[in-house]
């Protein structure tokens, strides 16, 4: 008994110190892993910073050759010509026109779709329709470009004689159908967030489903619905392949959808397809165009998130 008590503490002490050493090691490994995971998360911040840095760096070299005033006011964009002009306006007008057509298509369809999904559809219908809309989002844009160039435009030419093979109308419509799922899903989320009691109040007053949807639910969810539109604009502005294929490659300061015009994204693709030497003014010009594109989508994204946040705080 006595000897046992003398021996035992020694053994346990040994065990404890071994365990403590193991604990220290485990603790160290834990810290290393946490640090590695944090580095991975930091990659998002690093990517944003890299995008901003690269765009600014190359654009600054560009603006050493071109004055900002020319860039913002000149009405011609011909960086690759002998007589070079560097006015971004024609590219912006092309971008805005195609986006506007896309929105004219997507807003009514997307809104009606969202109202239907949120207020009218049965659970079963909703569970069937939403995956189909998701599949539509998954279709690569180059395929939609084919559709705009070789299906929609020839179809439109039958109704609108004299419509050129490259025009902004066809790709605009196709882009609109592409962004319907984005708009309807964000708008539907906003409408579903409206509390049931508001609908019940309306039904109790004898309103029909349609009246409740239009006069109660829609106004209550309006900031979320507008956020959906704004996010849709941002999608349309950044869309590349459809316009690069079907809207034409000639910068053209016009808002007429029947004409052909290049967009910011289409210009970047056009230049990248050629073989421009690194560091030339043409090479730098795509970064300046990219900076404008980035700023445009950033503004719309921020606006969209702000309005979306606002509706979340209401209830």
């Amino acid at each position: 008994m006595n000897t046992a008590t003398q021996v035992l503490p020694n053994q346990t002490e040994l065990k404890i110190s071994a365990r403590l050493a193991k604990n220290v090691r485990r603790h160290f490994v834990e810290r290393v892993i946490e640090f590695l995971l944090m580095l991975a998360a930091m990659s998002a911040v690093a990517t944003t910073m890299a995008i901003v840095a690269i765009l600014l760096y190359e654009s600054l070299s560009f603006f050493e050759h071109v004055s900002i005033i020319d860039f913002l006011t000149d009405t011609q964009w011909t960086p690759l010509f002998e007589d070079a002009h560097y006015g971004i306006l024609p590219l912006v007008s092309g971008t805005l026109t195609t986006s506007a057509i896309a929105l004219l298509v997507a807003i009514p369809i997307g809104t009606i779709g969202a109202i239907y999904l949120s207020e009218f559809a049965s659970h079963r219908t909703r569970e069937t329709v939403k995956p189909i809309l998701e599949l539509l989002v998954g279709v690569p844009t180059v395929v939609f470009g084919y559709f705009a160039l070789l299906f929609v435009t020839p179809l439109l030419q039958k109704f609108i004689p004299g419509l050129p093979g490259f025009n902004m109308l066809g790709p605009g419509i196709v882009m609109g159908i592409m962004i319907v799922p984005y708009i309807s899903s964000v708008a539907e989320d906003a409408m579903r967030a409206v509390p049931m009691s508001m609908r019940e109040g309306s039904y109790a007053m004898g309103a029909t489903r349609f009246q409740t949807a239009i006069r109660v639910v829609t106004p209550a969810a309006i900031s979320g619905i507008i956020a959906a539109y704004i996010l849709g604009i941002s999608r349309a502005v950044g869309e590349t392949m459809v316009v690069a294929l079907a809207a034409g490659q000639q910068p053209n300061l016009t808002f007429n959808p029947m004409e052909s015009a290049s967009t910011i994204t289409a210009y970047i693709v056009q230049v990248a397809m050629g073989d421009l030497p690194h560091g030339s003014i043409g090479y730098q010009s795509i970064f300046a165009a990219g900076l404008v594109l980035m700023l445009m989508t950033l503004i719309f994204n921020i606006l969209g998130h702000l309005t979306r946040k606002k509706f979340r705080e209401t209830y």
Partner: peptide, 22 residues
């Protein structure tokens, strides 16, 4: 980090191309 992830999801794909080119 969160804001950056949300923002990156909204950056047009062609801008990633410019990043990669540079």
């Amino acid at each position: 980090i969160e804001i950056n992830v949300t923002n990156l999801a909204g950056v047009p794909s062609i801008v990633y191309g410019l990043l990669a080119l540079g």
